[in-house]
């Protein structure tokens, strides 16, 4: 499971890397409502590697529906 701070820290950095306004992302944010492009996927792979030492794949991240799904993917691999 994740600490609240871990989730917040991840979301803050992801928001920054994909240049969204602060506070845009939460676990329920739907991918279809943001610009979830290849740059976002790569930022997400980098953050999961850096913060949790987990390697996510572009294929997995292409299928997610909400931002919360990223943490589901990470916890499955932990």
């Amino acid at each position: 499971m994740f600490e609240k701070e871990q989730i917040q820290d991840f979301l803050t950095e992801l928001t920054e890397s994909i240049e969204l306004p602060d506070g845009t992302l939460n676990l329920d944010t739907k991918i279809e409502n943001i610009e979830w492009d290849s740059l976002a996927v790569i930022s997400c792979i980098a953050l999961a590697d850096e913060k949790f030492n987990i390697m996510l794949s572009g294929d997995e991240l292409a299928k997610i529906i909400t931002i919360g799904d990223i943490f589901q993917l990470i916890s499955k691999k932990q």
Partner: peptide, 12 residues
């Protein structure tokens, strides 16, 4: 080019 695959490869 599949950028995310190349990225996964490079960082691993």
């Amino acid at each position: 080019m599949n950028g995310s695959k190349v990225f996964e490869f490079s960082i691993s």
